[in-house]
C-alpha cells in the first residue's frame, strides 16, 4: 500500500466504498451520481454545493487553506487540508491542490482543484 500520507485509508486507490443502497465500488470508480443518490436515500445527510473561492497554499509546507462558499446561502467556510487531500468535484471527479502528490501517495487519479470548482460536501438535513 502507498505510504507517506496521513490521509485516511479510504482515499487509497482500490479502497472499497459502500453506497447508501449497499452497492460496493472502488473509490476511484465513484461518480457524481453515486453521491447524489446516496444522499437521497440518507435520512440525515444532504449534498451541498461548495464552490472553491480561494486556495492558499503559501504558508505551511504540504498544507493548504481552501475557502468555500457553501450552499444556497453561500456561507463562507475555510478548511485546512493536506495538499494531497482529494475533494470530489461535480461532474469531474477527484481533485486536489496537488494532484501529482495525490497520485503519488494514494494512487488516486486526480485533477487540479481550482477556484470556481464546485465540490460535493455534506450538511445535515435538519439543523435543529
Amino acid at each position: 500500500a502507498p505510504s507517506g500520507s496521513s490521509l485516511p485509508a479510504y482515499f487509497i486507490k482500490g479502497s472499497i466504498i459502500q453506497l447508501a443502497d449497499g452497492e460496493l465500488k472502488h473509490v476511484e470508480d465513484l461518480k457524481t451520481e453515486d453521491f447524489i443518490q446516496s444522499a437521497e436515500i440518507s435520512s440525515e445527510l444532504k449534498i451541498d454545493s461548495s464552490t472553491v473561492e480561494r486556495i492558499d497554499d503559501s504558508h505551511t509546507h504540504n498544507f493548504a487553506i481552501v475557502q468555500f462558499s457553501v450552499g444556497e446561502h453561500r456561507a463562507q467556510v475555510s478548511v485546512e487540508v493536506q495538499v494531497e487531500y482529494p475533494f470530489f468535484v461535480f461532474g469531474q471527479g477527484w481533485s486536489s491542490c496537488c494532484p501529482d502528490r495525490t497520485t503519488q501517495l494514494l494512487e488516486l487519479p486526480c485533477t487540479k482543484l481550482s477556484v470556481g470548482d464546485v465540490c460535493i460536501s455534506l450538511t445535515l438535513k435538519n439543523l435543529r
Partner: peptide, 19 residues
C-alpha cells in the same frame, strides 16, 4: 477487507446558522 461508508469521503461543511 475494510469497507468504508460513502459519506466518509465527503467533507462535512456545515455553515454556521446566523439565525
Amino acid at each position: 477487507v475494510p469497507v468504508f461508508p460513502w459519506h466518509s469521503l465527503v467533507p462535512f461543511l456545515a455553515p454556521t446558522q446566523s439565525d
